[in-house]
């Protein structure tokens, strides 16, 4: 089995078989990272550049661990230390790095479509580690893997994504991926934080949190991105917490409380209370562990893929 895709730029239009293959490949790498010696030679001789134009700690660390555990040669590039500050264009930066003979690029950028643009102009295999409000496919894959690990299947599950949907790449990738895998997806948030025409994404829409919670087998609680000034679309953090915050008290009222995911980093006592984040329904730390394994699976499948596979 091989992936039909050459790059992982997003989950929109990625066939079900590819997602299935990535999720099915993940357990063997989960086994690797639970060994005392957490390393396999799979990508020995492969050079991977982590091209991060936007600050990130956990995603970059997760990718770097995944790469090193596959024995790849890893180079980290952060925009703050680069020639980007000297006015170089993205394309020139990428072409210069490629001229140093790299095989794969893991890329984060604040502009939607930036990795799509570069993948058209360059020869390396690209993995999107988040492009603005567009997609964050490995996050959605690790979310789906983590859900599947607990529930056994994605087909037929009711999954609700809660928070700032309009500015969320995690939301978009989850919507595309979960729908492809047969889950029923809903979103919930203040209408001012939902994309215009959100129904066109094929999701149910809730603006009442309790109704959303009653619908859900699983909730994915998004971070309120204070740095993106999402705050302008609602009056105050206090009001957000009161209206959309996930608290133990709210979940207690439900006959079947949902599984709780959060892509991190947490704003404790804003979108999620500590008793939920650290409570029994939460799989937040499992998500982080699974993230490394899922990324190893993606890197392995793309890095060992041959052109004749397509």
């Amino acid at each position: 089995m091989a992936l039909s895709i050459r790059h992982l730029l997003g989950l929109e239009n990625v066939p079900r078989e590819d997602i299935q293959l990535i999720l099915d490949t993940t357990p063997s790498f989960l086994e690797v990272i639970n060994r005392p010696i957490k390393k396999v030679p799979t990508l020995q001789g492969t050079t991977i550049v982590n091209l991060f134009f936007e600050s990130s700690t956990r995603t970059r660390v997760s990718f770097e661990l995944a790469e090193r555990r596959l024995s790849a040669d890893v180079v980290n590039f952060a925009a703050s230390t680069s020639s980007v500050n000297k006015g170089e264009t993205l394309l020139d930066t990428a072409r210069n790095i490629e001229a140093m003979k790299v095989d794969m690029v893991v890329m984060r950028h604040s502009v939607p479509g930036a990795p799509h643009f570069l993948s058209r102009m360059c020869t390396s295999a690209f993995i999107n580690a988040g492009d603005g409000a567009h997609e964050h496919p490995t996050q959605a894959l690790l979310d789906m893997y983590s859900i599947r690990q607990k529930t056994g299947a994605l087909e037929g599950l009711n999954v609700c994504i809660i928070g700032d949907i309009a500015h969320s790449r995690v939301a978009r990738s989850n919507i595309f991926g979960l729908k492809t895998m047969g889950a029923s997806v809903a979103v919930c948030g203040p209408p001012s934080l939902l994309p215009h025409d959100v129904e066109s994404l094929g999701v149910r829409v809730f603006t009442n949190l309790d109704e959303a919670l009653s619908f859900s087998d699983v909730i994915n609680v998004l971070r309120i991105q204070l740095e993106r000034k999402a705050g302008a679309a609602f009056p105050s953090l206090r009001e957000y917490r009161e209206t959309f915050g996930i608290t133990g008290k709210r979940l207690e009222r439900l006959p079947n409380p949902p599984l709780v995911l959060h892509p991190g980093p947490l704003n404790r006592e804003v979108e999620i209370s500590s008793d939920v984040a650290d409570g029994p329904a939460s799989i937040i730390l499992e998500q982080v562990t699974n993230g490394v394994a899922v990324r190893m699976a993606v890197l392995y499948l793309l890095g060992t893929r041959k052109e004749s596979d397509s």
Binding site: P112, G132, H167, R172, D197, S200, L201
Partner: peptide, 15 residues
């Protein structure tokens, strides 16, 4: 344009 396509691409929309 703000609409079904920008809902998918996440590009900042103009209504």
């Amino acid at each position: 344009h703000e609409g079904a396509v920008s809902a998918r691409t996440g590009l900042p929309p103009i209504p």
